[in-house]
Design a binder for these strands. Structure first.
Length: 293
DNA sequence: AGCACA
């Protein structure tokens, strides 16, 4: 019975073996006054999230907008330079999961802007420098256009590479006035004023943090024992319940603390069990905490 | 996309 010793180990989120797999998302449909920190807040809770960058493209008003009408027929604000974002994940699977979770979500209820998320054409590569923040701003706007915020000092980093977007929007103005700035890391949690609470509420709707996890996309032969083997390695693990609703099993895993549940969701998102036959587990916060025994 | 247990 020789099988790889790691076969039953938990599958931690690790880089894709295949470097050609895309782990970066291209995000459009953003209001033009969006802040890098808002993009970061949007993705930070998604499992496997690594970092993101906000990019102002140089082309502005004259160009025909790549999209002017949202999926539900509303007009999207199109003024000044376009702003897009790239969100990079630890691997392809978690990028896909985040894309499905957030694509089409209303980013700004007031402006009615709806997020368009697709896989980027190429992966983001960032030189890991100590002290570099969780998000980055790339400003390719023509310099005359009134500089808004994000005017921190340029630390001379020209190594940050932006991936190409799905629309090939910016092939035109390449090295023209590229400025890359690393924002100072400040705790976003404590620096989010009123406006962002609304964002958080909109985005996290149906995904409120909970110390119980909902686990789906399990194989038909998944057993409670098998799943428990993996989950019980994590601190705070309380109990597991499996239920087969109309066929495929789903599971509920309870933890002592929300943070412990979050850690598990992040670590095990999209990972495979020996019984998996349809891709990795899909893990979300449960809608309600598991009741006491 | 699929969220129960009392």
């Amino acid at each position: 019975m020789a099988r790889p010793p790691y076969e039953y180990d938990p599958y931690y989120l690790q880089p894709d073996q295949d470097r050609n797999l895309i782990n970066t998302l291209f995000v459009s449909g953003l209001p033009d006054d969006v802040k890098a920190r808002e993009i970061h807040n949007l993705f930070r809770r998604r499992a496997g999230f690594d970092y993101c960058q906000l990019k102002y493209t140089g082309r502005g008003n004259q160009e025909a907008p790549t999209w002017g009408i949202g999926d539900i027929g509303e007009r999207l604000p199109m003024s000044g330079a376009e702003v897009v974002a790239f969100a990079t994940f630890l691997n392809h699977q978690s990028a896909i999961a985040a894309m499905h979770a957030l694509n089409g979500v209303k980013f700004d209820p007031q402006a009615g802007s709806v997020l368009h998320i697709e896989l980027a054409r190429s992966n983001s590569r960032r030189k890991r420098k100590p002290g570099s923040g969780p998000y980055v701003v790339i400003d390719n706007r023509i310099k005359a256009s009134a500089n808004t915020q994000e005017t921190s000092s340029d630390d001379g980093d020209s190594d940050t590479e932006e991936p190409s977007g799905a629309e090939d929007a910016d092939a035109s103005n390449k090295d023209e006035l590229k400025t890359v700035k690393s924002d100072t890391v400040q705790d976003p949690e404590n620096s989010v004023p009123a406006a962002n609470e609304q964002l958080e509420r909109t985005i996290d709707e149906g995904a409120q943090a909970c110390s119980t996890l909902f686990i789906a996309n399990l194989g038909p032969n998944c057993t409670e024992y098998e799943l428990k083997q993996v989950l019980s390695k994590y601190p705070g693990f309380n109990m597991l319940k499996i239920r087969a609703k109309g066929g495929m099993p789903v599971a509920f895993a309870d933890f002592e603390q929300v943070e412990q549940a979050t850690k598990v969701m992040t670590d095990l998102q999209s990972s495979l069990l020996p019984s998996s036959d349809r891709g990795g587990m899909h893990i979300e916060y449960a809608r309600s905490k598991m009741r006491k025994p």
